[in-house]
Nucleic acid binder design. Structure first.
Length: 853
RNA sequence: GCCGAAGUGGUGGAAUGGUAGACACGUCGGUCUCAAAAACCGAUGCCCUCCGGGCGUGCCGGUUCGAGUCCGGCCUUCGGUACCA
């Protein structure tokens, strides 16, 4: 055995062995329970970052642990390979996206292999490969048949920088999720997936995913935004048309005194009278000129314009002036709102501004609202007034009663409204899955027939960076013939949102080479659902909602038998580091600010707060450099030890040193005792003295602790801490030569418990300890309950809630013995002097609490 | 505003309602060395009259023999979301 721990040599050797022997390859196996462990696959940007290191280290611990526990573990890896950066690289550096992506994948695969992750590399998929996306095109055709995919013209989010449209989920605070440009609105003809058809089911299942973090479920529930209410039709005065509104407050109908429409509402123009036209048009133009971010900001003043028309309140007959209002959104509800200024704050402000009438219809308990003196709307519960036959009802029952009344009148009905919009999947980009349809002058929109799939993304395109998809300019791709009538036709040149590929890759992993369909049903039935999914919380709504939807679609077209894709979800925290900047040279990389000074000018570096590692702020650590310097095991150990997985991880160079030091210590501890331990026989528990039993007890306590911490709790930091304690305990144990068998068990346990965390060094030490077969052959260590037995226990004694003494008693001492021992402790007795003992609580094996006074 | 999570030493973080601060980092002291690094040993919440005692888990109350943990009310930070009718 080498005297010094040399990670580079050890790691290369084991990685080579794992690759050569395909150690982590799996098949559907009878007789062994399956476990599907998945980490979110990366975008092949070129290099892995610390977020990947953390994500995949966490996953690998679980994979290796479950394997040791006897599960048949599916642990795959692949590439989310379509996307914009590839296209940008082509524009900027002239490298073709396919070449760029392939090279990046090769680089990153090599990096991941250097981390010693236990993937079944035979299942690797890249979503840009035709034999992946062809099945996506097929599923799209099925969705088209079922009406789950459709094309419509709509106002959509347009990112001017990415030159493509975005789904609602992909707009964050009015900006593009990817590049942060301000998103504009454009009216375009686009493809959508009917995710709203699954809104109710997606929502319903959020209550049946106990293995998901509550925060993620809440975010999804809010995003779906179900709201129960009622649609009401308001007849337009002197017109056959009606304005339909959605409201959750039908109980306030008698108080509706005017109507507000979105400026984009289809009826807006028709309802504008000649004398109002100039003003209305100016208003609409002005509002549409404001970008979405400002328009939906809270402090935008409520503004509107009168159209000149009136509609009629169906229950009061009141003439309600129809306004256009800047705060009414066309894409929620029906784009029209019945305004009840007394019971809705926005309507209140609007009414005050334009001098519109107020009518109180809900009285709060013990108070009388007066429209003349109200300073705000009353939006809470109360008793109905001025509401004809409904007076005196509590407003909650009023909701139902008025809805029923409207249903009888034929001008209203119960409805459920969702905030969730259909998923806009068209992208005006090249590097994505071609949408397999053809436009024919005769036949209209024609799906590409199944047998003609895949529609292969052509490679001979020209990247100018000057707007528009390069695909649309490629005549050889665009010009085709209609599959139905044979006449000349044009291909769809939009490609899919790349979230489509990531919505089903976990299903493809079950049978990645299957070539007669998207998935092999028997393989999906065996492996799915994913038992544990691990990834960043930033995907809480987008990816995780799309993946749930797509899984249900695949179920409904017979490709999968599960309702939900992911049984358990772990969302890991971000990797953070403090930023450093120079007043002169801006953000500094860690190596540019050594000694707390800017390496360029020597000015003191300004230390900023801890933030998510990002290239733009240069607060990044390069995993390659870390691995080259310390080895993969140290990198893994530090990221697992520094914080529990779901919390943010604060980077700390000295912490890395500490992790490395620990591995060196373990190496030495084993190496120093190899001779002693190699000749050791089995343990005879009965023949051990107290010291031997003590170490064995610690060994088996550690087994129990580490097992509990990994299994389900994912408390890797405390699991590692427990092993560190054991290592400290072994180092300090004075009887190594007297009990070599106990020492052997202790050292072997350390190595076995470390296996999932630092697999290379663990396997190496295991071999040094004389084992021909790897760690997996003997499984996960089992806690020997008998070894945990203690003869005496330390009892804490409290007097009036404060610790006043500690006594040691036999483990099997009865309550009165413990009580007497506690009261007999000199220091305890001191505090009881002159006091009456009123109560004594004895917690067996733990403490005695004395109440005196 | 609403929803969610979290506030514990110099730092990262531990604690089924039962000795608060495990483990690690850092710092200080020591051993070894010509010296340094590495390694090892010891100390390390604050305070005092220091075999002992007082105070300490964001703030204020409560439940309990006993609260970092449970309950009520605040404050702060982070994340999500928002004219959603």
């Amino acid at each position: 055995m080498q005297e010094r721990y040399n990670p580079a040599e050890i790691e290369a050797r084991w990685q080579e062995k794992w690759a050569r022997e395909k150690s982590f390859r799996v098949h559907e196996a009878e007789g062994k329970p399956k476990y599907y462990l998945l980490e979110m696959f990366p975008y092949p940007s070129g290099r892995i970052h610390m977020g990947h290191v953390r994500n995949y280290s966490i996953g690998d611990v679980v994979a290796r642990f479950k394997r040791l526990q006897g599960f048949n573990v599916l642990h795959p890896m692949g590439w989310d390979a379509f996307g914009m950066p590839a296209e940008n690289a082509a524009i900027q550096h002239g490298t073709h996206p396919a070449v760029w992506t392939t090279e990046n994948i090769a680089n990153m695969r090599a990096q991941l292999k250097k981390m010693g992750l236990s993937y079944d590399w035979d299942r690797e998929v890249a979503t840009c490969a035709p034999d992946y996306y062809r099945w996506e095109q097929l599923i799209f055709l099925r969705m088209l048949e079922k009406g789950l995919a459709y094309k419509k013209s709509a106002a959509v989010n347009w990112c001017p920088s990415c030159e493509t449209v975005l789904a609602n989920e992909q707009v964050e605070e009015g900006c593009c999720w990817r590049c942060d440009s301000t998103v504009e609105q454009k009216e375009l003809d686009q493809w959508f997936f009917r995710i709203t058809a699954y809104a109710e089911e997606l929502l319903d299942w959020t209550n049946r995913l106990p293995g998901w973090p509550e925060s993620v479920l809440t975010m999804q529930r809010n995003w779906i935004g179900r709201s129960q209410g009622c649609e009401i039709d308001f007849a337009v005065e002197g017109d056959s048309r009606a304005i339909r509104v959605f409201t959750t407050r039908p109980d306030t109908l008698y108080g509706a005194t005017f109507m507000s429409l979105a400026p984009e509402h289809p009826l807006a123009e028709m309802l504008t009278t000649a004398d109002r036209r100039t003003e209305v048009e100016a208003f609409v133009r002005r509002i549409q000129g404001i970008d979405r971010l400002q328009r939906t900001s809270d402090d935008l003043e409520k503004e509107g314009v009168f159209t000149g028309s009136y509609c009629l309140n169906p229950v009061t007959g009141r003439r309600m002036p129809v306004y256009l209002a800047n705060f009414v959104l066309m894409d929620y509800g029906t784009g029209a709102v019945m305004a009840v200024p007394t019971h809705d704050q926005r309507d209140f402000e609007f009414a005050r501004k334009y001098g519109l009438p107020l009518q109180v219809v809900i009285q709060p308990p013990g108070e009388v609202l007066d429209p003349a003196t109200m300073t705000g709307a009353w939006e809470e519960a109360g008793t109905m007034v001025n509401s004809g036959p409904f007076d005196g009802l509590d407003n909650d029952s009023g909701k139902l009663r008025i809805t029923e009344h409207l249903e009888q009148l034929g001008c209203g009905r119960r409805t459920v409204n969702y905030r969730l919009r259909d998923w806009l999947v068209s992208r005006q980009r090249y590097w994505g899955t071609p949408i397999p349809v053809v436009y024919c002058a005769e036949c209209g929109t024609v799906p590409v027939p199944e047998e003609q799939l895949p529609v292969v993304l052509p490679t001979d395109v020209v990247f100018t960076g000057e707007g528009g998809s390069p695909l649309a300019k490629l005549e050889s791709f665009v010009n085709t013939s209609c599959p139905r009538c044979g006449s000349p036709a044009r291909r769809e040149t939009d490609t899919f949102d790349t979230f489509v590929e990531s919505s089903w890759y976990f299903l493809r992993y079950a049978s990645p080479q299957h070539d007669s369909g998207p998935v092999e049903r028997s393989a999906v039935d065996y492996w799915l659902p994913v038992d544990q999914y691990i990834g960043g919380v930033e995907h809480a709504v987008m990816h995780l909602l799309y993946a749930r939807f797509w899984t249900k679609v695949m179920r409904d077209i017979g490709l999968a038998g599960v309702d939900e894709p992911f049984t358990n979800l772990l969302t890991q925290g971000m990797v953070c580091m403090e930023t450093r900047s120079c007043p002169e040279h801006g953000w500094l990389y860690p190596e540019e600010s050594q000694g707390d000074r800017c390496s360029k000018c020597g000015a003191p570096a300004v230390v900023g707060r801890n933030e998510k590692m990002s290239k733009s702020k240069k607060n990044v650590i390069d995993p390659d450099g870390l691995i080259a310097r310390y080895g993969a095991d140290t990198a893994r150990l530090f990221t697992l030890f520094a914080a529990p997985p779901e919390k943010g991880l604060e980077w700390n160079d000295q912490g890395v040193e500490g992790a490395s030091r620990f591995l060196h210590r373990v190496w030495r501890l084993v190496g120093d005792h190899l001779e002693l331990v190699r000749g050791a026989g089995g343990i005879d528990p009965a023949g051990l003295d107290e010291s031997g039993r003590d170490l064995r007890r610690q060994v088996h306590r550690t087994i129990r602790k580490v097992t509990d911490d990994i299994d389900g709790r994912f408390q890797f930091n405390t699991a590692i801490a427990a092993v560190m304690e054991l290592v400290n305990g072994i180092s300090a144990w004075p009887d190594k030569t007297r009990h070599p068998a106990v020492l052997r068990e202790a050292l072997e346990t350390v190595v076995r418990l470390l296996g999932p965390f630092v697999p290379h060094v663990a396997e190496e030490l295991w071999r040094e300890l004389g084992h021909e077969q790897g760690l997996e052959a003997c499984g996960w260590p089992v806690c020997d309950e008998a070894a945990l037995a203690v003869s005496t226990v330390l009892i804490v004694v409290q007097v009036n809630g404060k610790v006043r003494g500690k006594v040691t008693v036999p483990a099997d001492a009865d309550e009165s013995t413990v009580r007497e021992a506690a009261l007999g402790d000199p220091n305890v007795a001191r505090f009881l002097e002159g006091q009456t003992v009123r109560k004594v609580v004895v917690v067996p094996g733990r403490l005695v609490s004395v109440v005196a006074g």
